[in-house]
Design a protein around this nucleic acid. Sequence first.
DNA 1: GACACATAATACGTTTCGTACTAGTATGAT
DNA 2: ATCATACTAGTACGAAACGTATTATGTGTC
Lengths: 184, 184
Amino acid sequence: MTPTTTLGFALLGLLQERPRSGYDLRKVFATTPMAHYSSSPGAIYPALRRLQRQGLISGSVDRSQSLRPKKTFRPTAKGIRALKGWLSRPVTREDVVFHLDELLLRFSLMAGLQSRAQTRRFLKSFARELEAYVAELQQQREALRADAPLHGRLALECGTESYRAHARWAKRALSRFSSKQKRQ
Amino acid sequence: MTPTTTLGFALLGLLQERPRSGYDLRKVFATTPMAHYSSSPGAIYPALRRLQRQGLISGSVDRSQSLRPKKTFRPTAKGIRALKGWLSRPVTREDVVFHLDELLLRFSLMAGLQSRAQTRRFLKSFARELEAYVAELQQQREALRADAPLHGRLALECGTESYRAHARWAKRALSRFSSKQKRQ
DNA sequence: GACACATAATACGTTTCGTACTAGTATGAT
DNA sequence: ATCATACTAGTACGAAACGTATTATGTGTC
């Protein structure tokens, strides 16, 4: 069983870095670039319960720091497996078109869990799918009739440019993970 | 009263171009670059009912084309007002960070409804907010400690590049709407 | 007239999340 | 000493939004 939402994977990924409480997790979502995930308690706490019900995380109460008990969660072995499985999914066209953010989240969370080779594979297929999609968008643009509305044409160009920027990024990132250099 | 979801505004915008049935609308979402809105009946029809309940669109049955009655919707005067109000909202930082797609949708739907001057105002503030956010992201990047994980640093750069691409686009688009040239 | 296919929509259930609320703890001010 | 405030931590409730499955009608064609 795997998380049902992207939020679930995000939580799993954060908990893999270090055990945290629901409150800690809310703070991460409220204050870091991961901010576009909801930090409302109505999102986080139920999601944690779902993960726990599925046996992907386990909770334990910590009293060492203060009188106030703090319930921290950490992924189970099963949770780590689920997370790794998600991280190594192939990059599909659909992902690129509809879930670009999710792909970037996946990349971020690969840090401790995937080998350099796996990261490279990810970036390569990411770049490939992006370039293919950019080509498709360009064809769509050329297929537009001359009388097509200016607004629509420009909006299409905006999308194209954005995907192009991502493709460039992926290739640059790939060079940073070249097997030659171990650091930097 | 205004639509509660972006989907509502998208529907309102499409209906403003020409009256359509729920089925027509689903086809638009299934076959055009607006594809990342759901085209499932469970999304469209309830949304249309919501709009109707709020008095933003009105439905009428058309039998001219075939025996099969076809229920088409069109925006009411109130609906047009709501749409125009949405289109002319100021571009906030929050929009840029969390609802970039929505801003592009807004731009696309301005075609028939906003003056050239209004479009220019939109693009100007869009570019301004984007550039401000890019500057912020760059500061965040510089603030990263040297030992920050490579994955995180790169993911941040990806975001920065994407917003930068949008900013460039906005400025190019602005030049296409310069008040000098009336066409092209 | 029977079959497939396009059109058009309903019904139902589930998931997910936002808001409002509760409550204990540490801390600085008065 | 106590009061207000901010921080930590979470529960409860409800409603919105959507996906899947299903229904039903019209149209062309073999």
